[in-house]
Design a protein around this nucleic acid. Sequence first.
DNA 1: CCCTTCTCCCAAAGCGCTTTGGAGAAAGCA
DNA 2: TGCTTTCTCCAAAGCGCTTTGGGAGAAGGG
Lengths: 339, 339
Amino acid sequence: MKLKDLAEHLQLSQTTVSRALNGYPEVAEETRRRIVEAARRFGYTPNAAARRLATGRTGSVAILFPAERNLLVDPHFSDFLAGLAEKFGEADMDLSLKATRKTEELDTYRHLATMGRVDGFIVSSPRSHDERLSLLAGLNMPFAVHGRSQDGLDFPYFDIDNEGAFRQATELLLDLGHERIALLNGIRELNFAQAREEGFRLALAGRGLSADPELIFNGPMVEEMGYRQTCHLIDRPAPPTAVLAASVLLAFGAYRAARDRGLTIGRDISIIAHDDGLPFLKAETLEPPLAATVSSIRNGGYRLAEILLGRIAGKPASELQEVAPVDLVFRPSVGSARK
Amino acid sequence: MKLKDLAEHLQLSQTTVSRALNGYPEVAEETRRRIVEAARRFGYTPNAAARRLATGRTGSVAILFPAERNLLVDPHFSDFLAGLAEKFGEADMDLSLKATRKTEELDTYRHLATMGRVDGFIVSSPRSHDERLSLLAGLNMPFAVHGRSQDGLDFPYFDIDNEGAFRQATELLLDLGHERIALLNGIRELNFAQAREEGFRLALAGRGLSADPELIFNGPMVEEMGYRQTCHLIDRPAPPTAVLAASVLLAFGAYRAARDRGLTIGRDISIIAHDDGLPFLKAETLEPPLAATVSSIRNGGYRLAEILLGRIAGKPASELQEVAPVDLVFRPSVGSARK
DNA sequence: CCCTTCTCCCAAAGCGCTTTGGAGAAAGCA
DNA sequence: TGCTTTCTCCAAAGCGCTTTGGGAGAAGGG
């Protein structure tokens, strides 16, 4: 059943039926009721392709990820994706997932954009200077970024206060008397890792200290990484008294390392992490409970979806930039530095 | 730049240009060359919405997942998804991801189908009797199932030989003298878990043994689960001498439990698992290396995507049913039963 | 009572592509 | 040479919806 049939059956024009169904004001309430009722009875649903062609809106957005490094197995990314999927689902928009080789990444953006296959893009894991942003801006394609970038562009984004979070966490450790603090961080190229390191450095500088490059590690945020680096750290001549980790996954590895080495967490070594709220690995249920700066990454996906929708609806970028504050939750995995 | 402009510029009709670009035979090679060249020069790309409307094909497929139980954080699912995304990307099809509440699941399928928003669906985690299959069959919507189902329907699917794999693995353990064998399995409702249990039972029955219900566990396939159940098992009065796990994640937990209890894996307790080839957790690099039945789940996604594409292209279901054999790889995590 | 302003609805023009049904020219056949 | 095929290409009809530009009649204003 198509619009034409429905209109004929109601003895009305397609125009009126279309307007009634789309909630335009220029149709009498009584008529609208009749139309809506008939549409329901006949199970009429507008054809998506026709609507797309007529309106120029596709009702879908895309997110690309590198095919070789399978981001999907990174639970941080998956959880973020779940937040996106939830919001876009609510808005009845399609979220399409694209695996693409690094070398073809920009072409894929361009391809999808010029074919008019999407209304916008979600850009994740921005690097400090990211070609994708200028490309999309140049194509005049709406996009929203998870995180920020140093490019001078004015674009919509959602980010958490990574710098502030790590500054606070570091200050907490400093207040507890720690001076040799290690940082287990994400991959250096990614913007959020840089912000976190910056917060770490700022806190140290505030006390007249400077970061020891030997205590800073960058790498993938997986358990194994946390384990290995912490083992190294503990085995040093002057091991750090505290570890600041960029993910609960890293902290989890650090826990394992501390146990292996017979250290009591919270007493012999303090551990604090950033907690993205991954559902299967809760900071509060670790033993001992893990102190953390918390901010749900899934919720971030949800918010970022709202932001992209706002952008597509025409809001200016300046109104679509959000930096969520991060709470610091104290738990027994941190204690005062042993003298 | 649209088709019309291009045609006018070339002094040809839209028909000819369209045909040339889509590889139809009724256009002279020389003309085609000119057209293709001009299209490239002007950067012409056909508009997706218009093409969709004209052809009736949307160029996109969808996969739904339950919003409450976030399947995305399950690495088995994510890796499967990566395989799908890869193949659909190669075919230049959109793969759209939909979070949906369980109660609205069927409606969402219907909604997307009747609006003509997708050409087909990927159905994952089928239950033994699954309403989704009959709904989609009734809507006359192409779909492809990851796994099988007991419904009498004839539909395209990709599955691995779960029953055979677990029969083989169990037989291996039996050959090594094990008689008290525990099974750590996935959630009971899911078809693959049933097939695995069936294989397990068949192998036992082949030796005149029957499965001890107290040694069979169903649950989510996560590390924690493997750990907890294995602890219970080891603490029993007559602990099993071998454990058969449905995932490397479960086996990983079993390893941890065995170590905690001071057991040597491969000597005091044998462990064997099904290995989906998750990239971050390799059976061969565990200590000791884990014996396993192997079959890449990512590859399964890739194959299933091919199958759905075949279905959309009109192939009959009977030609699109694949059961991949599973290899059994012997490694030191299994040894003969201690007398 | 006439004129303006709403209110409610309509006809028709796109949106940009594919595809049907020919038609003219060139080539093959007798 | 006359006639049938085969090659190439074209005009135009959709695909099913939204939206523009009115228009008729009712309501309100002076």
